[in-house]
């Protein structure tokens, strides 16, 4: 570089570098910070980042499936989405992250409790909390949401205990997001018509949501799966960009986990959260089914809850039964 060009280049670089440094960040991590984000920074940089302490994780798809796709199609989309994250190349080795499909489950409740848990992927029509009164505000999920990821975690450390992905299975309309969904071809999803909305690619949606499932926030990079905007016709979110790869490799660097690791959720595996062993419905407010005492919602101020610190011995049997029920499918994990 010439002696005259160098100072100019440094000056130009410095001018652009004066743009707030937070804009430089690429992927973000979800953190325990509950205060509103201030300024233009794309990432919340305070609080403890979310993480799975034992990143050998199971997931289950609710057996009632979706009105838009067969259970086999859903299973294919969801499995491939998890494998996309699991099979990332972190410099010759995969991340220390293993996903084990279990199930199918019977659980549309995004809950975390002492009696067994499942990281569930459920399709909801109507789009609401099945445990709440339909006339109650607590019933409704955001009507304009296609999917939400609900994470249970330690209040201060960011350690994740449970993550559930809920998909809005209603027909999309002007006042409601939702289906149809499909496994679109690699060339993209077909457009719809004025009266008939085109499908969204389920795999693209789930791949993005799994990023949150493992604690990754949004990215600055437009081609990243974790970028905050996308187009329906696109299936590009199925494929991780380098920024997504950096995120998963940074958070879960290669380690010792393999496909035979113990993927039992904290509190034991409970694939069915809605009926008991006799087929009777499990009440949503069944005492002891939730951390803490269950409490109530009157007045807005309610009971404090504690994470299940110790797994009760009574659940050990359930865990063993659950393990036996887990259907481990062969994984396409790369060496």
């Amino acid at each position: 570089m010439s002696s005259r060009a160098f100072p100019s280049a440094v000056l130009v670089f410095a001018v652009f570098a004066c743009i707030p440094p937070s804009d430089v960040a690429a992927y973000c991590r979800m953190t325990t910070e509950t205060q509103a984000q201030v300024g233009d920074a794309p990432c919340v940089e305070t609080g403890a980042p979310f993480f799975w302490k034992h990143p050998c994780l199971s997931y289950a798809i609710d057996e009632r499936g979706s009105r838009w796709m067969t259970n086999e199609e859903i299973e294919e989309a969801v499995d491939l989405s998890f494998e996309t994250w699991e099979n990332v190349d972190c410099g010759g080795s995969p991340p220390n992250l293993v996903f084990t499909p279990s199930g199918p489950s019977t659980c549309r409740r995004p809950e975390f409790n002492n009696n067994g848990n499942v990281n569930t992927i459920a399709f909801l029509d109507p789009w609401g909390n099945p445990c709440a009164d339909r006339n109650d505000i607590d019933y409704r999920y955001e009507p304009f949401a296609l999917a939400v990821t609900i994470v249970w975690r330690n209040g201060s450390s960011g350690e994740m205990f449970d993550a559930d992905i809920m998909v809005n299975d209603q027909l999309s309309s002007s006042v409601n997001a939702g289906g149809p969904y499909a496994n679109c071809p690699d060339t993209g999803c077909p457009p719809g018509s004025a009266g008939s909305p085109g499908p969204s690619d389920l795999r693209s949606i789930v791949t993005h949501e799994i990023g949150h499932f493992i604690g990754i926030g949004h990215s600055n990079i437009e081609d990243a799966t974790m970028y905050a905007k996308t187009e329906q016709s696109s299936v590009s979110n199925r494929t991780l960009a380098q920024d997504d790869i950096n995120a998963v490799c940074d958070i879960y660097p290669p380690g010792s986990l393999d496909q035979f690791c113990d993927a039992t959720p904290l509190g034991g595996l409970g694939l069915n959260c809605e009926t008991d062993e006799f087929g009777e419905p499990v009440a949503c407010d069944e005492p002891g089914s939730v951390p803490g005492n269950g409490g109530g919602c009157s007045g807005g101020g309610c009971s404090a809850g504690d994470a299940p610190a110790d797994v009760p011995w009574a659940t050990v049997l359930l865990v063993l039964i659950g393990l036996a029920a887990m259907r481990r499918r062969p994984r396409r994990r790369h060496a």
């Binding site: 010439s2 280049a9 652009f16 949401a145 993005h208 926030g217 600055n220 990079i221 437009e222």
Partner: peptide
């Protein structure tokens, strides 16, 4: 050569500050 260096610097800096922005939600 100086021009290339300058343009390269601008592009490099722009790459570093490229703009961006969970739940999948319909934009309103």
């Amino acid at each position: 050569k100086s021009l290339f260096v300058l343009v390269g610097s601008v592009l490099g800096a722009l790459l570093l500050v490229s703009h961006a922005q969970g739940s999948v939600v319909q934009a309103l």
